[in-house]
């Protein structure tokens, strides 16, 4: 089975490294980006099964990116991109806003490998329920 591609976006290197180590150990293909600009570049050129991102970054607001993904994602070409949102300072506002803007899971930093893994699977599982992802991912 082809391993799933996960795009991780965070402005902190150690978070990216941590995610990479944990998720690769789980057999995912992990791509790391440290800015929203890079993320958009990658997302428009390739297909990803999941994106894990921090909502609060200095350069680009994660919320803005979420909005972008939700609005401009060419749904007819790509199935919906499931997103796991991370935050070190989760307020109910950020959590609900993220969820409203399409996030599947909310992950509070700092997290343990187990927490990351379970959130990842949950988010992927939900996306499967839509049934679309399979046909497309099999392509």
């Amino acid at each position: 089975m082809k391993s799933k591609k996960i795009l991780v976006l965070d402005d902190d290197r150690i978070v990216l490294e941590s995610c990479k180590r944990v998720l690769e150990a789980e057999g995912f293909k992990v791509f790391l980006v440290s800015s929203a600009r890079e993320a958009v570049e990658l997302l428009t050129t390739g297909y990803f099964d999941l994106m894990i991102m921090d909502v609060k970054m200095p350069e680009h607001d994660g919320m803005y990116l979420l909005e972008k993904i939700k609005e401009k994602w060419p749904l007819d070409i790509w199935p919906e991109l499931p997103v796991v949102v991370m935050s070190g300072y989760p307020t109910p506002d950020t959590i609900s806003e993220s969820l409203v803007r399409g996030a599947r899971e909310f992950l509070v930093k700092p997290f343990t490998p187990d927490e990351l893994i379970s959130s990842t699977y949950k988010a992927l599982k939900r996306s499967k329920k839509h049934g679309k992802s399979k046909s497309i991912s099999d392509r």
Binding site: E17, S18, C19, R21, G88, P110, F111, T112, P113, L116
Partner: peptide
């Protein structure tokens, strides 16, 4: 929160790994 939680994530992750 912002500054500590990131390194903490690293510490937690690598310790558990």
């Amino acid at each position: 929160a912002h500054e500590i939680n990131n390194p903490l994530t690293g510490v937690l992750t690598f310790t558990h790994m």
